[in-house]
Amino acid sequence: MARHVVARVSDIPERGRIIVTLQGRSVGIFRVRDKFYAVLNRCPTRAPSCAAAPSSAT
């Protein structure tokens, strides 16, 4: 697994996230309980899934 430095720990607040581009792909980086998770910013409908603000689906 490759490692990439994308931000400082202090740049991502607890329960926060940032969106970065790695090798041409949009990736959401999430911080949960001082652990970091990277998720490809795509859903099956090809729309971004790590939106800047939560959406409310009805």
Rank of each mutant, 00 (worst) to 15 (best):
M1S: 08
M1A: 15
M1I: 08
M1C: 05
M1V: 02
A2M: 07
A2P: 03
A2F: 11
A2D: 13
R3C: 10
R3S: 12
R3L: 07
H4Y: 10
H4R: 11
V5G: 09
V5P: 00
V6I: 15
V6P: 02
V6Q: 09
A7Y: 11
A7V: 04
V9H: 06
V9P: 02
S10F: 11
S10V: 15
S10D: 14
S10I: 12
S10H: 12
D11C: 02
D11P: 02
D11G: 08
I12L: 09
I12W: 00
P13A: 09
E14I: 03
E14L: 05
R15H: 10
R15K: 04
G16Q: 00
G16T: 05
R17V: 06
I18S: 01
I18H: 06
T21L: 14
T21N: 14
T21D: 15
L22V: 15
L22T: 14
L22R: 14
L22W: 14
L22H: 11
L22K: 12
Q23M: 13
Q23H: 12
Q23E: 12
Q23S: 13
Q23D: 15
R25W: 08
R25Q: 06
S26M: 10
S26V: 01
S26T: 08
S26P: 04
V27C: 06
V27E: 03
G28R: 09
G28H: 04
G28Y: 01
G28S: 11
G28W: 07
G28Q: 06
G28P: 02
G28A: 12
I29R: 00
I29D: 01
F30L: 05
F30W: 06
F30R: 03
R31Q: 02
R31L: 00
R31V: 00
V32F: 02
V32Y: 04
R33P: 07
R33E: 04
R33M: 07
R33Q: 09
R33W: 04
R33I: 04
D34L: 07
D34N: 15
D34S: 12
D34T: 08
K35I: 12
K35L: 11
F36R: 04
Y37F: 13
Y37H: 15
Y37G: 09
A38G: 15
A38D: 08
V39K: 05
V39G: 00
V39T: 12
V39A: 05
L40K: 09
L40A: 08
N41Y: 00
N41P: 02
N41F: 06
R42I: 04
C43H: 06
P44I: 07
P44C: 13
P44H: 04
P44E: 07
P44T: 09
T45H: 13
T45D: 08
T45F: 14
R46W: 04
R46K: 04
A47I: 13
A47M: 10
A47C: 14
A47D: 12
P48L: 10
P48S: 12
P48E: 11
P48D: 12
S49G: 10
S49L: 04
S49M: 07
C50H: 01
C50E: 07
C50G: 03
A51G: 00
A51M: 05
A51S: 08
A52L: 13
A52I: 09
A53E: 15
P54F: 05
P54V: 06
P54R: 02
P54A: 00
P54G: 06
S55F: 11
S55Y: 10
S55P: 06
S56Y: 05
S56W: 05
A57W: 00
T58V: 15
T58C: 13
T58L: 15
